[in-house]
Simulated scan of single mutants.
Amino acid sequence: MTEPKTADVMCRRVVTAAPDATFKELVGTMIVHEVSMIPVVDSAGRPVGMVTEEDLATKLEFHGGAANPPMLGGAHTRARWHKSSATVAAELMTPSVSVAENADLRAALRLLAGVRVGGLCVVNGAGTLVGVLGRLDALRLFLRGDNAIRADLERQLRPVSTNEHRVTVRVVDGAVTLDGGLCLRSATQRAEWIARAVPGVIAVRNNLGFDVDDLMITGL
């Protein structure tokens, strides 16, 4: 498995809502489908916003807007108070953040780190919604089987292995152990970097030996 893309882990079965979906429809959809967020899409299927369970819960928190506006708590608290009187998705939603389906997962997760709603809308080349990416979707990579991880890593390490210098890979519960030896010390470090980047790897123990300490020679 190469560098995973957003499409590799995103949730493809997405329940959406139109901007005019009512408050009660949104609550019912979340409960029936057991989701915590609903993308709001326009007539062409392009995402325009995201409604979360937090948005809906403001109606209880602030008595549907009957409670006095909060004096403290900052802009986010005031925005929640305004949503408490909303009746349709367009009034409840937060503008959505989109990512291309072919984007590197690593870049998508960095983008997700700055998103308050906790999910990204994944779109195709036409800007149409094709999935949703949450942190839990990405974490599923750590459920990859040990055999799949080992085969993936052995394939990636093949260029550095020779008849005289080989790397033996063991994987137990996602933890990788590298045994054997390579010609250069820098090659042993590169082997560890490769291992750490394989999807599903949790930890790496590098037991690789080397013949020449090229890092000492170069002063690195």
Rank of each mutant, 00 (worst) to 15 (best):
M1Y: 11
M1T: 13
M1I: 10
T2V: 15
T2I: 15
E3Y: 05
M10V: 01
M10P: 04
C11G: 14
C11R: 14
R12T: 12
D20G: 02
T22G: 03
F23V: 06
V27M: 07
V27C: 08
M30C: 12
M30F: 00
M30S: 03
I31D: 05
V32E: 15
H33V: 06
E34N: 10
S36P: 01
S36D: 07
S36A: 12
I38T: 06
V41W: 02
A44E: 12
A44L: 13
P47M: 04
M50L: 15
V51C: 01
E53G: 14
D55I: 00
L56H: 02
K59I: 01
L60M: 11
G65M: 11
P70S: 04
L72A: 12
G73Q: 13
H76Q: 06
W81M: 00
H82E: 07
S84W: 01
A86M: 02
A89W: 01
L92T: 00
L92W: 00
T94A: 11
P95K: 03
V99N: 05
V99C: 08
E101F: 05
N102D: 12
L105A: 00
R106G: 05
A107E: 13
A108H: 06
L109P: 12
L111T: 15
G114T: 04
G114W: 01
G114V: 07
V115C: 09
V115E: 05
L120Y: 00
L120E: 00
V122H: 12
N124E: 04
A126N: 06
G127W: 05
V130G: 03
V132M: 14
L136R: 09
L139A: 13
R140W: 08
L141Q: 14
F142V: 03
L143N: 08
R144F: 01
D146N: 14
N147F: 10
A151K: 10
D152V: 01
E154C: 08
Q156H: 09
R158N: 07
R158L: 11
R158G: 03
S161G: 02
E164L: 14
E164K: 14
H165E: 08
V167S: 03
V167Y: 01
R170D: 15
G174C: 09
G174E: 01
V176P: 00
L178M: 07
G180S: 10
L184M: 13
L184T: 05
R185Y: 14
T188E: 02
Q189L: 15
Q189R: 14
Q189W: 08
R190G: 04
A191V: 08
E192P: 03
A195P: 04
A195R: 04
V198I: 15
V198F: 06
P199L: 02
P199Q: 02
G200D: 15
G200L: 10
V204C: 10
V204E: 10
V204L: 05
R205L: 11
N206C: 04
N207F: 05
F210I: 08
F210N: 09
F210M: 12
V212K: 13
D214K: 10
M216V: 15
I217A: 11
T218D: 15
L220H: 11
